[in-house]
Simulated assay, not measured.
Amino acid sequence: MQRQKLYVYAGSIWCLLFALMSFYWAGGGMIGVRSLGGFIYQKALEREASFIMLVWLTGIVKVCGGLFLLLLLGKWPRTINRLLYSLSLLAGIFLFLYGMANFLSLALSAFGLLALQVDNFALWWRLLFWEPFWMLGGVLVTLAAREFKKAAVTF
């Protein structure tokens, strides 16, 4: 049970930290935005209303993800257990694969094998921080799902 709590809380904190970044940027904060590079950085500079609304929305989705993970700490009927497990496992796999796909495409770009519109500053930030951060979230959510399944009395 302790391991389950560790992964659930770590995954929730990951989601909430990620959400705080989105809310900071949506509110006009610019620290760290350049590290994202490309289209996102350009839109952040332009402050286009639809883009800013999208950033607020991503923050809300991340908060919901953190709250969803906390549901894994409850005791639920078998059907709900299966649903929570399936959704959290799929979310974890998606987050990891998203980060990995971006990491691989950026690595190919770093070696000159793929042309991307991202400057070197953002390229290295994304390779060394952002994409591994996505993958970390995927690992945490996947581990939380696995431990939830192990701890569930009815599955």
Results as ranks from 00 to 15, higher is better:
Met1Trp: 11
Arg3Val: 11
Lys5Gln: 08
Leu6Lys: 11
Tyr7Ile: 11
Tyr9Phe: 15
Ala10Gly: 11
Ala10Ile: 02
Gly11Pro: 14
Trp14Cys: 05
Cys15Arg: 02
Leu16His: 08
Leu16Gln: 07
Met21Pro: 01
Tyr24Cys: 04
Ala26Asn: 13
Gly28Pro: 07
Gly28Ala: 07
Gly28Ile: 01
Gly28Gln: 09
Gly28Cys: 04
Ile31Gly: 06
Arg34Asp: 09
Gly37Ser: 12
Gly38Ala: 12
Tyr41Pro: 11
Gln42Glu: 13
Lys43Pro: 13
Leu45Ile: 12
Glu46Met: 12
Glu46Leu: 15
Glu48Leu: 03
Phe51Leu: 05
Ile52His: 15
Met53Val: 15
Trp56Val: 06
Thr58His: 12
Thr58Gly: 03
Thr58Arg: 15
Gly59Ile: 05
Ile60Asn: 15
Val61Lys: 06
Val61His: 07
Lys62Ala: 14
Cys64His: 10
Cys64Glu: 07
Gly65Asp: 05
Gly66Thr: 00
Gly66Pro: 02
Leu67Cys: 07
Phe68Ala: 12
Phe68Ile: 01
Leu70Val: 03
Leu72Asn: 07
Leu73Gln: 13
Lys75Leu: 00
Lys75Phe: 00
Trp76His: 08
Ile80Gly: 00
Ile80Val: 00
Ile80Phe: 00
Asn81Met: 05
Arg82Ala: 02
Leu83Cys: 12
Tyr85Ser: 04
Leu87Ser: 06
Leu89Ala: 14
Leu90Ala: 14
Ala91Gly: 13
Ala91Tyr: 04
Gly92Trp: 03
Leu95Asp: 01
Phe96Val: 02
Gly99Met: 12
Met100Thr: 08
Met100Leu: 15
Ala101Asn: 08
Ala101Phe: 12
Phe103Ala: 07
Ser105Asp: 04
Ala107His: 07
Leu108Trp: 07
Leu113His: 13
Leu114Cys: 10
Asn120Gly: 03
Ala122Pro: 04
Leu123Asp: 09
Leu127His: 04
Leu127Ser: 10
Phe129Gln: 01
Trp130Ser: 05
Phe133Lys: 01
Met135Ala: 05
Met135Arg: 10
Gly138His: 01
Val139Leu: 04
Leu140Pro: 13
Leu140Cys: 10
Leu140Thr: 09
Leu143Cys: 10
Ala144Arg: 12
Ala144Phe: 09
Ala145Pro: 07
Ala145Lys: 01
Arg146Leu: 03
Phe148Glu: 00
Phe148Asp: 01
Lys149Val: 00
Ala151Lys: 14
Phe155Pro: 04
